[in-house]
Design a protein around this nucleic acid. Structure first.
Length: 207
DNA sequence: GACCAGATTGTCT
DNA sequence: GACAATCTGGTCA
């Protein structure tokens, strides 16, 4: 089932942790693409690395201060987009950054979008092992800025969504340990333990 | 495997 | 005018 609005109306760190193992779905004209979330980061309102820090309300950050459960997509380094989901009540600028996915469905489309030859060693692991990569692989663009994450074409399915349809082997991947550590690629607030990922998962961006 | 520079543009000071 | 929640491809070992 699609995660409801209520899911996002809670503590940001709780949401970041519970998003691990859930499925990010993008229904595109060329096909449905699904990836399991294996790595996230929290960005809090009292955190200097957060764009919503110190009530910095601008054209770019305004969705962060709006309703929770919406897509906050923004551009950085001159060529990459990052995909976040807003959390916290109206007026509080917090979000969860999706850092890595494990490809589940629409893998062919991902390869095409990322322009990686399938024969390449570890090609599957490279598809979504980083925030900029997964945005490319899923075909997410700035057009989805502010999109409501409880609605099509972009939404998130609960952890148990595939439990009944897939085989027993999935049981192995359902139980997992969450590792908490420091974030990546930032200078301010770099020491805060706000990054979460699934232990021993091969698809995270970095060990 | 580890380290480093380059790409390239929106956003804020 | 400086910087950025990154990735890739290069070098050197």
């Amino acid at each position: 089932m699609i995660l409801a609005k209520e899911f996002y109306q809670r503590d940001t760190n709780t949401i970041a942790k519970e998003l691990l193992g859930c499925f990010l779905v993008h229904e595109t004209p060329t096909g449905v693409i699904i990836g399991k979330i294996v790595e996230t980061e929290s960005y809090l309102t009292d955190d200097p690395a957060c764009h919503g820090y110190n009530l910095r309300l601008t054209e770019r950050t305004k969705v962060m201060f709006g309703d929770p459960g919406h897509a906050y997509i923004y551009f950085t380094y001159g060529m990459y987009y990052m995909f976040n989901i807003t959390t916290a009540p109206i007026g509080v600028g917090e979000a969860v950054l999706i850092r890595a996915l494990e490809p589940v469905e629409g893998v062919d489309i991902m390869f095409e979008r990322r322009k990686i030859p399938k024969e390449k060693k570890n090609a599957l692991k490279e598809l979504c092992s980083g925030p900029a990569k997964l945005v490319l692989a899923l075909g997410i663009t700035s057009a989805l800025y502010g999109h409501n994450m409880t609605k099509k074409p972009l939404y998130i399915l609960s952890r148990d969504h595939f439990r009944q349809t897939k085989k027993q082997e999935n049981n192995k991947t359902q139980a997992f340990e969450v590792i908490t550590t420091t974030r990546i690629g930032i200078s301010a607030g770099a020491e805060l333990p706000l990054r979460f990922y699934i232990k021993d998962n091969e698809f995270i961006s970095k060990k």
